[in-house]
Write a protein that binds this DNA or RNA. Structure first.
Lengths: 202, 202, 202, 202
DNA sequence: CATGAATGAGCTTTCATTCAT
DNA sequence: GATGAATGAAAGCTCATTCAT
């Protein structure tokens, strides 16, 4: 029995502790290779007891994804609300997403990407609806920048390039190294709107 | 029994057909959810016969990864050899990697990313050594561009941003749509060296 | 939570409502496929609360059987007491047993037959002792008829043929159809003492 | 590992031995209380091996029922074909059914009645279609007798009374006692067409 | 090399029963 | 008495792997 690290947006109820443990295990071993016994062991209960909280193993996976989308959608909203200028909104979004991916919700965010296929079709549709809300926040800001002429590509394609850049960080970014989340965010913003300092130099 | 699409770099031997089928199934259903019976059925043999060609199921996964890395490392070498100027070499690399991911070796490339965790530690190390060769080709070209002052970030970080952008395409890019591999490659190159040069050229 | 139909011989106490619900569920789904949660849900309590009334699930089954035997043994006694002539006593017994099986105690009577095996050896012995009393009432009447020469077979064998005929009715008899319990009882009595007497009476 | 008694109509293949063992266990302990491990143990294989022969446990139950219906339908056909006079055909049918129930196919016949509910709706329908063929053989003979005026009740009701009488025998009939299958069959035939000797005496 | 029956460990899930509140 | 979370021992079923033919 190991102590599960708390995951932001998940409280200390039995259900919350179960979700934390599941997120961590699903990320580390994958959904299929993680057994309900594994999850139960981390939380310190018997495997049968899990089914008082979730009807199936898949429901645990869905709950992990649902909660992390909700939590980070709110984070995105707050990030946008705190800034006026589109380029600063973009920077806030990138920082928020990076924090989600390599920071407080990293386990669940990784699971969201890597274990997507393990949801059945119905649950995928349901989760997709939630992701659409999240994505729309990005698209709105990118559309503003596009209108301002800050980049040429279609906003929805630019979003996909950004998704790739931020999403891949869970495979390499280490906050303890020299590069900070803020530094990395600036780097990514530069990929979208060009290197500001260059402009400043021009 | 379905006819497995040929995968570039894999010949028509029984072993080759097995790898093709495995790559496709591993991508579509995931390594864990794919049974050796599934693979055997596609090739038209019995499940027991698979073990005359591969000692374990994991060995099949490893072979898929190994072959696709080898094949695409050669593709990268050819791409670099065909160009002189660093920026054109970069463009050639991006095109080559995009072709690998969304084109002829898409199944195996996706598997390389999504099922990495299913290899045991030893095999991961072994495969990593092969990937390092592949990655070094990228880093060399990026180092040249960096020396030329075409971007400011560390080359190895730039490579990771590119990896994210190209790697994610398997989730959205559809060659039948308006955007071509070449067009997308240009877009990505712009993210690295800025859009100015094009404007300047125009 | 559904309203359980009252079963004759079982009062409206919590225990009585539990037995009614159990009888119905055991008949409809079988003892093994009925969970204590099912029973609790029908009565409107939690599953844990059942064990304040019965020590085990099997005890519920036993109680259902015990009560229905008692109730119908009394019904048989009353039927015999109301008639003088052996053949009319037989008719009364058949009517009483049919009423038990397709009428007011049909659920519990069906359970008595179909779930007998689910009792452990001790409980089977105990229930058998009660059934013996019930059966003796039949055997006495049949012995009288046999002495009168109304049929040739051994009374205990004749009883078994009757048991088969009446017991099977729960699989087909539908009171709402043309055949009444009384009509069916006459038919069965004819199987025992022959159709001649009726003809003679006509 | 116990030796499973051979059941008529089931050969000595692995599948046949599995069905024999299952029929016996299902009768003795009931379908729900019999585990696939129980069945495997009797046959002397591992539990997992069962699923090479049957996809599910329920499929085993269905196969037991299907085979016993087929086998005994043929037995009924042969019985009818061997006699000309309706009353002798009836006697042959009763003997055949009694043999099925207390003789060579007793385990499976009992299972057919007692575990019917354990089949899902689809399989019940399928098995019912087979039973209808079996039942029609009975109804035809009974219709002939009815036309001859040998009994007054509707043939289909008479069949149900007979079903009850023969079906219940598995609970009490012991061939080693004084009453033989032939003797019991005569007794039952008398319940249908009246006691012949009485007529002879008249 | 191919077969396919068999293995056996391991999986998710169920459920009667317990017990602190 | 009632609650309902927790238990823990099964259950049915899956599947990579083996091996005699």
């Amino acid at each position: 029995m190991t102590q599960a690290r708390a995951v932001h947006g998940i409280d200390d109820s039995p259900r919350g502790r179960l979700l934390s443990a599941a997120a961590q295990l699903f990320r580390d071993k994958g959904y299929e290779r993680t057994t309900v016994r594994d999850i139960a062991a981390v939380v310190g209960i018997q495997s049968g007891s899990i089914f008082h909280h979730f009807k199936t193993k898949e429901e645990i996976l869905f709950a992990v994804m649902e909660e992390v989308i909700h939590f980070n959608t709110e984070r995105l909203r707050a990030a946008i609300a705190a800034e006026d200028r589109p380029v600063e909104r973009l920077r806030a979004l990138v920082r928020a997403e990076l924090t989600a991916i390599v920071g407080d919700t990293s386990e669940a965010m990784t699971v969201l990407v890597t274990e997507w296929r393990c949801l059945n079709a119905d649950k995928q549709r349901e989760a997709l609806a939630l992701r659409d809300i999240y994505e729309q926040l990005w698209l709105d800001v990118l559309a503003d920048l596009h209108k301002e002429g800050r980049f040429r590509a279609e906003p929805f394609i630019m979003r996909r390039l950004i998704t790739g850049m931020t999403g891949w960080t869970h495979n390499w970014f280490d906050q303890s190294r020299s590069l900070s989340v803020e530094g990395l965010a600036d780097l990514i913003v530069d990929r979208v709107v060009g290197e500001e300092s260059e402009e400043g130099a021009a």
